[in-house]
């Protein structure tokens, strides 16, 4: 078996025949690592993740998750991934606990589903009282914690998290990052994460791809990218790269 959990090969996506969202991007993600796609808004991060999550078709190119082709073997891919879309909402009228329970029962049965639910409750870090409340009463941070818990509790082989901290305040961001880091350490799941915050990438990611206008303009470890640009931090390196 390949040591790569995710392989993206010359992926192109053109919307409506004219808008080129991806221009032949390629990258590989090591199994059990946290890999980040970093780029400004509209760079192509979400399009890449939607293709990998089997939600949309690439115009050309290939992508594999754990050896399964994302188009030809979409249903197999869905069994082993978990996707957290950017700024996703929640079902307003069901409680956090009910939501996690329903999702656990979609993936597993009986005792296994109960174990998954227990794990979800733990990952969410929400109190029993909060979990029992309908999700329309949740703050943005609480909603995000429930969605992160939903994505991670099933122990996917690859978790695809699209800007998991977008729109949160600094405290909430730090909390979500802590959950992702601790989860990755505990379960060695491959995590594919996108962000446009350099601090977040430096904090979380083992390897980074910098993406802009549908092209990957740099790839490597955070320290390699900083060094290659002669920058003091990732933000400076990023700015140098995108201003070319």
């Amino acid at each position: 078996m390949s040591e790569h959990s995710v392989i993206v090969d010359k992926l192109v996506k053109i919307y409506g025949g004219s808008v080129r969202a991806l221009n032949g991007i390629s990258f590989k993600v090591d199994r059990g690592s946290i890999y980040c796609l970093v780029g400004p808004n509209g760079a192509g991060k979400t399009t890449t993740f939607r293709i990998l999550s089997t939600l949309i078709l690439p115009t050309s190119g290939d992508a594999y998750i754990e050896g399964y082709h994302v188009v030809r073997e979409a249903s197999r891919v869905r069994e082993i991934i978990s996707y957290l879309p950017e700024e996703v909402g929640t079902y307003r009228n069901i409680s956090g606990l009910e939501y996690l329970s329903i999702v656990s029962k979609i993936y597993f049965k009986g005792r296994e589903a109960e174990e998954v639910l227990e794990r979800g409750i733990k990952i969410s870090g929400l109190s029993e009282k909060d979990l029992a409340r309908p999700m329309k009463q949740y703050s943005k941070g609480m909603k995000r914690r429930i969605q992160v818990a939903r994505a991670l509790m099933i122990l996917p082989k690859v978790a695809i998290l699209d800007e998991p901290t977008a729109g949160l305040d600094p405290v909430q961001k730090a909390e979500i990052r802590r959950i992702i880091k601790s989860y990755s350490k505990s379960y060695r799941t491959t995590i594919l994460l996108s962000t446009h915050e350099m601090g977040e990438a430096e904090d979380l990611c083992e390897r980074v791809s910098i993406i802009d206008k549908g092209y990957i303009i740099a790839e490597g470890s955070v320290s390699d990218i900083i060094a290659s640009q002669g920058a003091r931090n990732l933000e400076e390196a990023f700015l140098k790269l995108v201003s070319r």
Binding site: L55, V88, Y91, Y107
Partner: peptide
Amino acid sequence: AIENEEKTLEILFSMPI
């Protein structure tokens, strides 16, 4: 429409359902 409004449809479609 609620699924569209809350963008939860993406999650449903990415599940093995």
